[in-house]
């Protein structure tokens, strides 16, 4: 559709985006509130951020969460990329529909079911629960998101480039690293970031699969939120939102720049630039 927007369109965009952003903006504003009463404005202050730095429990939880997110996102990206290659490239094989089912089902599966089932698996395997079990659980559901993101990149992929490399005698593994991976890299990076934030964010699955000594930040936030809204929690949330926003914006600028660069290279290569 290429026709211009009407007043109705513009209004619905403005209303829609205010709805999406207003709650987060208010949360950020009130994290700078002097007053302990979260809904009464008592002047500007950064004292809640200072008190955060002295909250060891919260900092510990944040450190656990970052480690889990980093490890699980990395493994999930490798597995998810493999899974995407299987979905797009492997054609038919026995159990293919089961395979694609196992990729798509976790995307919509209620978290309580995923969490419960993984916990029961870990109990059955007699594994000590903690960092590793949360990490494995996060890897499993995040790899499905990675697979879907990378798959969409692979679908629009010009296969002739790969075939050319193989015709010139490049072995498949080398072709993958030299030709395929650089082209699908934006998808892989986006997949990693998605996996990272999903893990950073997850409360339910982590609560089921964790053990002593591995309390994640969302679990900590959740237990405090149940007691009520506090400016400290607003401050934690603001930091998380800021980090994610910066990350996403940086990544999109990087992708854009890379795209522009590649288009320029292509034009130069074809000599009409």
């Amino acid at each position: 559709m290429t026709r211009g927007p009407t007043w109705f369109n513009i209004t619905s965009l403005v209303v829609g985006f205010s709805f999406l952003y207003l709650p987060i903006v208010l949360l950020v504003i009130y994290s700078f509130n002097e007053s302990r009463l979260v809904t009464v404005w008592g002047g500007f202050s950064t004292k809640w951020y200072v008190s955060l730095l002295q909250n060891d429990q919260l900092l510990d939880a944040a450190w656990v969460t970052l480690r889990v997110a980093f490890t699980s996102a990395t493994i999930a990206t490798v597995l998810g990329t493999l899974a995407a290659l299987v979905l797009v490239r492997s054609g038919r094989f026995i159990g293919r529909s089961l395979f694609s089912g196992m990729i798509f089902a976790p995307l919509v599966m209620p978290e309580v079911i995923l969490g419960l089932s993984l916990l029961l698996l870990f109990v059955a395997m007699d594994t000590a629960r903690g960092f590793w079990t949360v990490m494995l659980a996060h890897t499993t559901f995040a790899m499905c998101y990675v697979a879907v993101v990378v798959q969409s990149r692979l679908v629009g992929f010009d296969k002739s480039v790969e075939e050319a490399a193989e015709d010139l005698g490049c072995p498949p593994v080398k072709t993958f690293f030299l030709v395929t991976l650089p082209i699908i890299l934006p998808g892989v990076i986006a997949g990693w970031m998605l996996a990272f934030t999903l893990s950073l964010d997850d409360l339910v699955i982590a609560s089921f699969t964790t053990g002593p000594g591995a309390t994640t930040l969302p679990m900590k936030i959740y237990s405090q939120v149940r007691l009520g809204v506090t400016p400290e929690i607003n401050a934690v949330c603001t930091i998380l939102v800021a980090l994610v926003t910066l990350g996403v914006i940086a990544a999109s600028i990087a992708t854009k720049r890379q795209q522009v660069q590649r288009e320029r290279d292509e034009r130069a290569a074809f000599g009409d630039g």
């Binding site: 965009l13 985006f17 999406l20 952003y21 709650p23 987060i24 208010l26 949360l27 009130y30 979260v38 809904t39 970031m193 998605l194 934030t197 950073l200 964010d201 409360l203 969302p218 936030i221 959740y222 939120v225 809204v229 929690i233 607003n234 949330c237 998380l240 939102v241 994610v244 926003t245 990350g247 996403v248 999109s252």
Partner: peptide, 29 residues
């Protein structure tokens, strides 16, 4: 616009739900 729709999706689910408590409660915003 696409970016604006995707961005909240990246920010924590728990935080976005939590933000509504301060708005909706009886003495809320």
């Amino acid at each position: 616009l696409l970016m604006l729709v995707i961005l909240p999706f990246w920010t924590s689910f728990l935080i976005r739900v939590y933000a509504w408590i301060g708005i909706l409660k009886n003495e809320g915003l």
